[in-house]
């Protein structure tokens, strides 16, 4: 094991180039090289054995192909030495592969204590990232060269947070907290996928990872957080509509999606599933956000998640203002 240690240290000292290869996307996290060099190592092993097998196969076919005057020659039908060689060499190789796989995995899953913590909520089919100051955004913003820990859970089914450029992936399981961490090495914008199948829009459950240059992140968070002050209620409501996932299920152009359109609902009378009907006023909308199941709109499933405890009163007010603006009632 000792020399394995040394070897691995040598290898982890690999240059951390970011350029993508034929196999791998750009490499922009501190742990990515664990994945990449092991990938290349296994690739080398595989290519070697694959060629060994196929080349021998082809040679034998050519050399011993059945033809006039060619007979199968006698040769022993078993050979202990051979059997042992081709069991033990692969065995040794897989032990090495296993060891480095596990070692890399430990580094990839144990986050530094001083990491900056961001809360991740997955729900069909959008992400919300809650920053320490309580601000929520639908994209993952992070400082460069600073470890970030993600503490993740899901509101409905299992999702999985996957950032190819960071080589990280971790499931979001309802009723449990899972963690992932990364330290971005390059500012820029990278894709964040949902990797665990979660229904209709699984393939659109995509967010952006925006890695800010040194110092920029704090500035961004600063002015993003107090959008309620900086923006007009209507603008703020529209922003919330976008970042809190309403967009996923509600159109503002009159077309019905998973949920009814929000165009002109304010003040408009809604038919409810239980046969009754109600005028959509401030209180009703507030209720619809906090306890969606309380009054379900006729013709829709009660699938809207509750925002109970995940949305501030000022924000609800902003949303209401925005919905009003959609109905032309300021």
């Amino acid at each position: 094991m000792m020399d394995l240690q040394i070897a691995s240290n040598l290898l982890s000292a690999l240059p951390e180039g970011t350029e993508p290869s034929m196999w791998m996307p750009p490499r922009v996290s501190t742990v990515a090289h664990h994945v990449d060099w092991l990938f290349n190592f296994i690739l080398a092993v595989s290519v070697f054995f694959f060629l060994l097998i196929v080349v021998l196969m082809v040679l034998f076919v050519i050399r011993y192909r059945r033809r006039e005057g060619h007979q199968a020659e006698d040769s022993p039908s078993h050979n202990m030495a051979l059997e042992l060689t081709w069991s033990l060499i692969p065995l040794a190789l897989v032990v090495v592969i296993f060891f480095f796989g596990f070692k890399g995995f430990l580094d990839m899953t144990t986050s530094p204590a001083n990491a900056y913590e961001i809360l991740v909520d997955g729900q069909k089919w959008n992400w919300s990232f809650t920053y320490p100051n309580g601000y929520v955004d639908s994209n993952l913003h992070a400082p460069v060269q600073r470890p970030v820990r993600l503490v993740m859970t899901s509101a409905d089914v299992i999702h999985s947070l996957y950032v190819p450029a960071f080589r990280i992936k971790s499931d979001l399981v309802p009723g449990r907290y899972s963690k992932a961490w990364f330290e971005a090495t390059e500012p820029g914008q990278y894709e964040l996928f949902c990797a665990e199948y979660c229904g209709t829009s699984h393939s659109d459950m995509i967010a952006q990872v925006i890695v800010h240059p040194p110092g920029e992140f704090e500035k961004w968070l600063e002015q993003a957080s107090n959008f309620l002050e900086t923006m007009t209620p209507v603008e703020a409501g529209f922003k919330l509509y976008q970042v809190r996932g309403c967009q996923q299920c509600h159109s503002v152009d009159g077309s019905a999606k998973t949920g009814p359109t929000l165009l002109g609902i304010f003040g408009h009378t809604q038919a409810l599933a239980d046969g009754g009907s109600i005028v959509a006023d401030e209180n009703y909308i507030r209720e619809s956000i906090l306890e969606p199941a309380a009054r379900v709109v006729a013709g829709y499933e009660p699938v809207m998640p509750t925002y109970q405890g995940r949305i501030k009163d000022e924000e609800i007010t902003a949303i209401i203002e925005y919905l009003k603006s959609l109905s032309g009632t300021e």
Partner: peptide, 29 residues
Amino acid sequence: LSFLFLFSIGGLTGLFLGALSTDVHLHDT
């Protein structure tokens, strides 16, 4: 013969998935 060719590829790629660090990246892709 094509079994030898194809299964070797299939099986060997199982090694990428069996190794923890690489599987984190490759899982569900």
